[in-house]
Design a binder for these strands. Structure first.
Length: 822
RNA sequence: GCCGGGGUGGCGGAAUUGGCAGACGCACAGGACUUAAAAUCCUGCGAUCCUUACCGAUCGUACCGGUUCGACCCCGGUUCCCGGCACCA
C-alpha cells in the first residue's frame, strides 16, 4: 500500500471499476425486498453547487447502506430539463435551448460522476427529451379525458419579466418566485388542472405519511386551507338574482349590517344604481392601479364604495347596504361576504370607517367587555344575543343550529371551502412540453390522437424575448387538422408548467426505456412508492403537492397501485457560507469542483455529512474540510501500517484487557453506526463520529504492549465496511488492499456481537442529593437493590454520608445511585 | 397577526428521550520529532474560585418560575432568532 493517500488515482480507478462492472444497475427481483431511494433531480444549469453535493451525498449513503443491508436498491438520476433559463440563454447568446440543455447535462453528469454516486444511469431521464415528454402529453390527455383538465378565461397572475402566467403557488409575496418581479393580472384563456377535486384527499392522506416531517405536512395543510362554514343566500331589493355568500361564522348572521362584493364580482355592474355609478367607477379605477402586492398587503387601509342597493337578511329581515371593497377577493368562497362588524376585526375597521351599524350578537362571558361600545371586534366565544330564537345559546352550539335552520328554510347550507385553487398550467413559453390539444372552430377542443404523439417542439422558432411565445413564430407548428372532423385546425400554442414534468418522473424511472407506455404497471408496482425521498424544503408545497396529486390521479386511472408517491421524506437544510446562503451576489460560493480537485470527493462527502445533521442548515468551513481530509489520511496510514505489520499466522484472539477493549469498541461502533443509519434516523454526523472514535481506539491499541495485529486487521476490515457508504472510493481501495477481490459495495453490512458489548463491570455514578460525588463499579446485570447495598457498603460512600441521615435512596441499575440525606 | 421550529463552550455539534452536560471534529495553547517549516504524534482546552501542587468547591444548556430524589429534556410565563401563511370571510 502506498505511503500517500492519492485520492485522484483512487477515485478515478474506482469510478471506472464501478462503471465497467455495471455495479449500480438494478433490475426487478421478487426474491428481494426493494428499496427505492430518490433525490430530487436537478435542473441542468451546468454547474453543480454544494446543495446538490449535500442532497446526493445523503441519498448515496442511504442507497449504499440499504444495498449492503441486502435490499434491492433503486437509485436513479435524471434531469428536470425544461424551463426558462434555456430560453433565456437562447435570447441572450443565440444558442438553441436544446443544444444548451444537452451540453449542460453532459457537463453536470461528469460532475455527478466525479462524486462517485451509485446511480443506475441506464434509467436516466431528461424531461425535455421526446421519449419523456411524449408520455407527459399522454398523461395530460388522460387527465383531460377524465375531466381533470379544462380551459378557462380568467384574470391570471402575469409576470411581465418572464412574459408568462404563473400558478398561484409560484407567486411569492406578490412577486414571481423565479425573478422576483411584481406580478400583475391579465385576462387570458388558460389550461387548468382540477387539483381542487383532490383537495380533501390530499389533506386527509397526509395522515398516511408518518415518515414525513411534521413541518412539511403542516405547510401543505395550511396551503390546502380547508375551512368549514355555510353558504347563505341573501335576497337583493329590486333584483331577481340572489346573492350567495360564504361564511365560517353562521352564528353571527343576526349581526350582519352590510354586504360586500369583490370588485370583480359579476353582479357589480348590474347592481350599481345610477346615482352611485360615478363613485364606483372612480373606485374601480383606483384599484386598477394597485398591484397584487399592494392589494393583498394587510396594512392596506380597507376601502369600499356603496352600490346604492340593499340586501335582506334572511334570518331577521334587516335591510342592509351593499358595498364593494378592496379586501374582498373574487377567487375565494363566492366572492361576496356578509359583514359583521361586531365580531370580525376587518369588518369592524370597515364599518367604523363608513359609519356602518355595529350590532353585537355574542355576549362575552367576561362582563368587562361592553359589547355596545367596542374598540375592536369581539371574536371569542360567548352567549348569543339579539338573535331571536337562538338567544342564550353558546355561539359554538348555535353554528350548527343556525345551519340546520337555514337548510330547512332553503336559504343556506353547510359548506366547505379550500384555499387551494385549481392549477394553472399554461405557459407562454417555448422550452416546455407542448400541450397536446387542438382547436377546431366546429368541434372545439380535442386531444391529439395517441398515435400522433408526441407533439414535437418545432425548431423553426425565433427567440426575441419580446411579446408572444416563440412557438407562435414557427411556420409549421400551429397548423394541423381536427382529430374529429379532419378540417384544418390549430394547435394549442402554450406549453406546460415544468412542474408537471417533475410530478411523475419517479414513475418513469421504474421503466425509463419503455417505448410503449409511460411505464409498465408491473414494474411501477414493484418499485413504488419511493421509500426515501431527499430534497430541499423549498419544495415542501409546490413539487410535493403536485407529485402527490399526480400519483393519486394515476392511481385512480388504474395505472399504479400506490396513491402516495413518497413514504419517507427527508428535507435537507441549506449549505451556507459565513451564515448566509451561497450566492453570486454575496460572493460566497464554494465550488464543489474546486474542493474535489483539492481534496477529492470522499473528503467533500465526508465533510458535508459530518458537519451537521442533514435536516439542519450547514455552515461551510474550509478548516472543517481540512479536518475531514486529515481523517481520511489518518485511516489510510493506519490501515497501511496494519497490513504491513500483521502476521497472518497469528490468530485474532481476544485475550488481554486491551484486546477486550478494542473488541468492545469495534462492536459498540458497529451498533452505533447501524442505529444511526436505520429507523429513519439519518444521523450521519454521529455515525461518522462513532467511526472516528473507533479509529482513535485502534491507534491507542496498536501502541499497547501486546497489540495483536491480526485482531487489528479484523477491526480494520470492519471499519472500512462501516465507512464505505460515506467515502466509497478510499474504502474500496483499502478493502482491496486488505486482500479482497470483490467490491466492498457487494459485501453485507457488518453485524455486531452482542456478547462483546457486555462488560463485566459497569461504572455508575453516586449522587448525594442529586449531585455527582463519585463513581463506583458494579457487576453488570445487577439488580437495583443489590446495587444500592453494594454502593452503600463502600467506604467512600460512608464517608460521603458522614453523620447525615438517609432520607431516601434511588437506585437505577447500571446507571446511578442517588442518596438523599438530611 | 396566525401557525410551526429553534436558542447548549471561541465555532460546527453530541447527550441512548428524565439519570456523569459538552461525545466527535474545528480553532487555540503547550510539548515531542525536525537545522527549520509542513506533515505527524502526545497533552490541555465551559466559567469562577481555592490550592505551592495534588485534591477540590461553586456556577453553568436564552431568561424567570414550577414538577421531580434528579430537568438541555416535562409544565407555565418571558424574550430573541429562523421558516411558512397572511385581508381566506
Amino acid at each position: 500500500m502506498s505511503e500517500r493517500y492519492d485520492f485522484r488515482e483512487i477515485e478515478q480507478k474506482w469510478q471506472k471499476y464501478w462503471a465497467e462492472k455495471d455495479l449500480f444497475k438494478t433490475v426487478e427481483d421478487d426474491s428481494k425486498e426493494k428499496y427505492y431511494v430518490l433525490e430530487m433531480f436537478p435542473y441542468p444549469s451546468g454547474k453543480l453547487h454544494m446543495g446538490h453535493v449535500r442532497n446526493y451525498s445523503i441519498g448515496d449513503v442511504t442507497a449504499r447502506y440499504m444495498k449492503m443491508k441486502g435490499y434491492n436498491v433503486l437509485h436513479p438520476m435524471g434531469w428536470d430539463s425544461f424551463g426558462l433559463p434555456a430560453e433565456n440563454a437562447a435570447i441572450k447568446n443565440g444558442i438553441r435551448p436544446d443544444i444548451w440543455t444537452h451540453d449542460n447535462i453532459a457537463e453536470m453528469k461528469e460532475q455527478l460522476k466525479s462524486l462517485g454516486l451509485s446511480y443506475d444511469w441506464d434509467r436516466e431521464v431528461a424531461t425535455c427529451k421526446e421519449d419523456y415528454y411524449k408520455w407527459m402529453q399522454w398523461i395530460f390527455i388522460q387527465f383531460y379525458n377524465k375531466g381533470l383538465a379544462y380551459k378557462k378565461e380568467n384574470a391570471v397572475n402575469w409576470c411581465p419579466s418572464c412574459q408568462t402566467v404563473l400558478a398561484n403557488e409560484q407567486v411569492v409575496n406578490g412577486k414571481c418566485e423565479r425573478c422576483k418581479t411584481p406580478v400583475g393580472k391579465k385576462d387570458l384563456s388558460q389550461w387548468y388542472l382540477k387539483i381542487t377535486d383532490y383537495a380533501q384527499r390530499l389533506l386527509d392522506d397526509l395522515d398516511k405519511l408518518p415518515g414525513w416531517p411534521e413541518k412539511v405536512k403542516l405547510m401543505q395543510k395550511n396551503w390546502i386551507g380547508r375551512s368549514t362554514g355555510a353558504e347563505v343566500q341573501f335576497e337583493i331589493e329590486g333584483f331577481d338574482k340572489k346573492l350567495d355568500i360564504y361564511t365560517t361564522r353562521p352564528d353571527t348572521i343576526f349581526g350582519v349590517t352590510c354586504m360586500i362584493l369583490a370588485p370583480e364580482h359579476p353582479f357589480v355592474k348590474e347592481l350599481v344604481t345610477e346615482d352611485h355609478k360615478a363613485d364606483v367607477d372612480a373606485f374601480m379605477d383606483k384599484l386598477q392601479y394597485l398591484s397584487d402586492i399592494d392589494r393583498s398587503a394587510t396594512t392596506l387601509e380597507k376601502e369600499g364604495c356603496f352600490l346604492g342597493r340593499y340586501a335582506i337578511n334572511p334570518l331577521n329581515g334587516d335591510r342592509v347596504p351593499i358595498y364593494i371593497a378592496n379586501y374582498v377577493m373574487m377567487d375565494y368562497g363566492t366572492g361576496a361576504i356578509m359583514v359583521v362588524p361586531a365580531h370580525d376585526q376587518r369588518d369592524f375597521e370597515f364599518a367604523t370607517k363608513y359609519g356602518i351599524k355595529i350590532v353585537p350578537v355574542i355576549q362575552p362571558e367576561d362582563p368587562e367587555i361592553d359589547v355596545n361600545n367596542l374598540k375592536a371586534a369581539f371574536a371569542a366565544e360567548g352567549t348569543m344575543i339579539n338573535s331571536g330564537e337562538f338567544d342564550g345559546m353558546n355561539n359554538k352550539d348555535a353554528i350548527e343550529k343556525i345551519i340546520q335552520y337555514m337548510d330547512e328554510k332553503g336559504i343556506g347550507k353547510s359548506s366547505v371551502n379550500f384555499r387551494l385553487r385549481d392549477w394553472l398550467i399554461s405557459r407562454q413559453r417555448y422550452w416546455g412540453t407542448p400541450i397536446p390539444m387542438i382547436w377546431c372552430d366546429d368541434c372545439g377542443w380535442s386531444p391529439v390522437n395517441e398515435e400522433d404523439l408526441p407533439v414535437l417542439l418545432p425548431k423553426d422558432v425565433e427567440f426575441t424575448g419580446k411579446g408572444q411565445s416563440p412557438l407562435t413564430t414557427s411556420k409549421t407548428f400551429g397548423k394541423c387538422t381536427c382529430p374529429k372532423c379532419g378540417k384544418p385546425a390549430s394547435r394549442e400554442m402554450d406549453t406546460m408548467d415544468t412542474f408537471l414534468d417533475s410530478s411523475w418522473y419517479f414513475l418513469r424511472y421504474t421503466d425509463a426505456r419503455n417505448e410503449e407506455a409511460a411505464f409498465d404497471a408491473k414494474k411501477a408496482n414493484y418499485w413504488m412508492p419511493v421509500d426515501q425521498y431527499v430534497g430541499g424544503v423549498e419544495h415542501a408545497i409546490l413539487h410535493l403537492l403536485y407529485a402527490r396529486f399526480f400519483t393519486k390521479v394515476l392511481h385512480d386511472l388504474g395505472l399504479v397501485e400506490a396513491d402516495e408517491p413518497f413514504t419517507n421524506l427527508l428535507t435537507q437544510g441549506m449549505v451556507l457560507k459565513d451564515g448566509s446562503k451561497m450566492s453570486k451576489s454575496v460572493g460566497n460560493i464554494v465550488s464543489p469542483q474546486e474542493i474535489i480537485e483539492k481534496y477529492g470527493s470522499d473528503t467533500a462527502r465526508l465533510f458535508i455529512l459530518f458537519a451537521a445533521p442533514p435536516e439542519r442548515d450547514l455552515d461551510w468551513s474550509d478548516t472543517g474540510v481540512e479536518g475531514s481530509y486529515k481523517f481520511l489520511n489518518r485511516i489510510w496510514r493506519l490501515v497501511g501500517e496494519i497490513i504491513e505489520k500483521r502476521d497472518a499466522s497469528v490468530k485474532p484472539e481476544v485475550v488481554s484487557g486491551d484486546d477486550k477493549q478494542l473488541n468492545f469498541q469495534l462492536n459498540a461502533t458497529t451498533k452505533r453506526v447501524s442505529d444511526s443509519l436505520s429507523k429513519g434516523r439519518f444521523s450521519f454526523n454521529t455515525a461518522i463520529s462513532a467511526i472516528m472514535e473507533l479509529v482513535n481506539e485502534m491507534y491507542r491499541y496498536k501502541e499497547t504492549e501486546n497489540a495483536n495485529y491480526s485482531l487489528l486487521f479484523d477491526a480494520a476490515e470492519r471499519m472500512v465496511l462501516l465507512l464505505s457508504p460515506f467515502t466509497p472510493h478510499i474504502c474500496e481501495e483499502m478493502w482491496q488492499q486488505l486482500g479482497h477481490e470483490t467490491s466492498a459495495y457487494l459485501e453485507s453490512w457488518p453485524e455486531y456481537d452482542e456478547s462483546a458489548l457486555l462488560q463485566d463491570t459497569v461504572e455508575i455514578v453516586v449522587q448525594l442529593n442529586g449531585r455527582v460525588k463519585m463513581k463506583a463499579n458494579v457487576a453488570s446485570g445487577i439488580s437495583a437493590d443489590e446495587q444500592k447495598e453494594t454502593v452503600l457498603a463502600e467506604d467512600g460512600v460512608k464517608a460521603l454520608i458522614g453523620d447525615k441521615s438517609i432520607v431516601k435512596v434511588v437506585s437505577v441499575p447500571e446507571r446511578l445511585v442517588n442518596i438523599v440525606v438530611k
